[in-house]
Amino acid sequence: MWVVAGIVGIAGLCTVIEYSSLKNFKKDLWVFGIAMAAATAISIAKALNVTIPNPLDWIAAWFEPLGRSMKRMFD
């Protein structure tokens, strides 16, 4: 509960810091908003111990067989 509040607090702080420089640039504001929302969402999910897909697993799915054969080749 407190952790989630803390994360939202930090997100709010970041928005406050950035707001004045973004007021005039529509596009930047949108990008910032989306990025901030994504970051806050993932942080809250992690704080609540929701399993978040690990990007390294996706990379491993592609490259692991190649890696293993490379290692075997050189051993």
Binding site: I10, I17, S21, A38, I42, P55
Partner: peptide, 25 residues
Amino acid sequence: LKLKNYRTLTLPCAMLMVVFSLIVY
């Protein structure tokens, strides 16, 4: 994304980086 200023992305990206450093390994 052709942003006016790269600094807009620094803070959200930092949050993502910290969170993912806990997820990644």
